[in-house]
Design a protein around this nucleic acid. Structure first.
Length: 567
DNA sequence: CTTGTCTGCCCC
DNA sequence: ATTCTGC
DNA sequence: GCAGAATGGGCAGACAAG
């Protein structure tokens, strides 16, 4: 008689079996039941590890630690196990479309020759992966790949599949927070809204699951918004034009500029300011100028507000492209220097908490009013997002055009009486952006896909004409249906002229119409330009030649001076 | 020392 | 970020 | 309508390679 629930350890094999069951079904309710069942029989001591693993994590997302392993390091590790070079492994990868499956095969072949197998426990696998994350300095790559190789060698084939996918941060089992939440609800007999509520304010699954098990609804309800701890951001959907926007959020609505910068959640407490990104990373150190400006121009003891940080040129007082702001986001050295060189202005647009009062359930217009009360506007430092309130389509359209003329991305349209809904894309607000004139480009290369696109060439290298030759301008991998991926793969395969790893070069025959948000200067592509957010609009089988670089240069210049738009 | 490669629940 | 897909 | 998967450009940092 086994006493699994009485022991404090659990075999990784059990988790691997669960992963496989989840992999096999596409039905969300079945996935929920599989996970709920597993959580119920997981001992308390393993629960935190199990819930992280189910979410494909090694560390809670609130942690600053990262694993530091991706496909190239996994290739190195698999190369160590097999003694084959990385090119040979890459060829298998290309066929299978999943490094987890490659690892599984590698281990399967190996176990035929080695007999003794010690069982891996969940906590042991977690311990090793975390140790791998902590290697640093000289030879750390060797140490990381060595440890990973050793771990995979001691795993069974199926375990190797999922350890590898976990290391790559891509479980591909169709499980995200939504299903895990519903499984917690079922396993520990708690209310869905309470689990969601606790997650919105902490985003730490391992803390959450223990709370659900130990303290139930009461414990979950007690988790509250706390200044200094980031909460999940409200997300916005896309609308197709102003008129569609009104039907989605109602009229009248608040309409605001959509600035091209970085979203920032700002916490004030006892004179201290903390800044968080959209993914809830702490970027306070990176923006000392913003911290200073906020301390000076926001008058409150405690509050949480939200805004968009936009970079500008201090001499010309013109906004600069997002790329330039990007230089500041991950900066760790010489921060003051870059802060002077690339100043930012914060356009604040929401207030979530003020002087002990949670404002999330207040209607948006009241939150905006609170913001207007406590933020003292200071030009080019802290300003309120430009806003009009109207139900008039012409007026809204004029405001939208004005935003575009000032080189912003478009507008946000917000429901006046909507609450702040953390973490979900409910339709309380929508974004409206213009459709730019598309480009006709020719496919000159492609890359074999991963996962559900494993059988197809699923990313396409695009080129334009540059005089008599072709010049690359980027890649495109979205906008196609599965049927279209199949078709393009069939059409490109006979055109392949060269293969290297997962990449192929093809004769330039297939012309496609490509949509995008912006043309950027590129340090990567031979044309000197790249597209921001490229996607397929349609095939241009009527055309044999792509657009010329001159046209792209012209659009780039137009973008800088007058923003071109089509309704 | 310089240059190239890889990584990131990165930012968009 | 965008887009497609299954529920 | 939602959640999940698969993919885009480009940035700094960390380390490897030369």
């Amino acid at each position: 008689m086994k006493q699994k629930t009485l022991t404090n350890t659990m075999d990784y094999q059990e988790l691997a079996d669960v992963y496989e069951q989840l992999d096999k079904t596409t039905k969300n309710l079945e996935k929920r039941d599989i996970i709920a069942d597993f959580l119920k029989r997981t001992p308390k001591s393993e629960l935190a590890n199990v819930i992280l693993f189910l979410n494909g994590e090694i560390f809670p997302s609130v942690s600053e630690e990262v694993l530091g392993i991706a496909d190239k390091m996994v290739l190195k590790a698999l190369s160590k196990i097999t003694g084959k070079n990385e090119n040979a492994i890459t060829n298998v990868w290309k066929e299978k479309g999943d490094l987890g499956l490659v690892a599984e095969q590698v281990v399967k072949k190996k176990t035929q020759t080695t007999l003794s197998q010690e069982k891996l426990t969940i906590s042991y696998v977690m311990e090793i992966l975390r140790a791998i994350a902590r290697f640093e300095g000289e030879n750390s790559t060797q140490k990381k790949t060595g440890s990973l190789a050793k771990l995979l060698s001691s795993a069974k084939p199926k375990e190797a599949r999922y350890i590898t996918r976990t290391a790559l941060g891509d479980l591909r089992i169709g499980v995200g927070f939504g299903i895990i939440r519903d499984a917690i609800v079922k396993a520990f007999n708690v209310e869905k809204e309470h689990v969601q509520h606790a997650y919105d304010f902490r985003s730490d699954l391992s803390e959450l699951v223990l709370l659900a098990k130990e303290s139930g609804n009461k414990g979950l309800k007690n988790v509250d918004l706390k200044v200094g701890k980031p909460l999940r951001l409200m997300l916005y959907q896309k609308a197709q034009g102003i008129s569609n926007g009104f039907t989605r959020v109602g009229a009248p609505a608040a309409i605001e500029y959509k600035y091209d910068g970085m979203r920032v959640q700002c916490h004030f407490k006892k004179g201290e300011v903390t800044l968080f990104t959209r993914r809830l990373d702490d970027v306070t150190k990176q923006f000392p100028d913003l911290v200073g400006a906020l301390k000076e121009h926001v008058s409150c003891k405690e509050c949480i507000l939200e805004g968009e940080a936009v970079a500008y040129n201090s001499k010309t007082k013109e906004y600069v492209p997002f790329q330039i702001l990007g230089k500041r986001i991950k900066r760790k050295h010489r921060i003051d220097e870059i802060a002077k060189k690339i100043p930012v202005v914060l356009y604040v647009f929401d207030m979530l908490y003020l002087e002990g009062k949670n404002l999330l359930l207040e209607p948006f217009k009241k939150r905006r009013a609170a913001l207007e009360r406590i933020v003292r506007k200071k030009a080019w430092q802290v300003e309120l997002a430009k806003q009009v309130i109207t139900g008039n389509e012409d007026k809204a359209q004029r405001f939208y055009n004005e935003a575009l003329e000032k080189h912003q991305e478009g507008v946000m349209m917000k429901k006046l009486d909507a609450q702040y809904q953390p973490g979900s894309r409910v339709g309380f607000g929508v974004k409206v952006k213009p459709i730019l004139e598309p480009l006709d480009l020719v496919i000159t290369g492609a890359i074999w896909g991963e996962g559900k696109r494993g059988k197809w060439l699923s990313s396409y290298v695009l080129s334009c004409k540059k005089g008599d030759v072709l010049a690359e301008i980027g890649k495109m991998a979205t906008g196609l249906s599965e049927e279209q991926f199949e078709e393009v793969t069939k059409r490109l395969e006979p055109l392949i002229t060269k293969t290297s790893g997962k990449r192929v070069e093809v004769q330039p025959k297939l012309v496609v119409e490509v949509g995008y948000e912006e043309i950027q200067k590129s340090p990567t592509y031979s044309s000197g330009f790249a597209l921001r957010f490229p996607r397929l609009i349609r095939f241009r089988d009527d055309k044999e030649e792509p657009d010329d670089l001159e046209r792209i240069k012209r659009i780039y210049q137009d973008q800088k001076s007058l923003s071109q738009k089509q309704a």
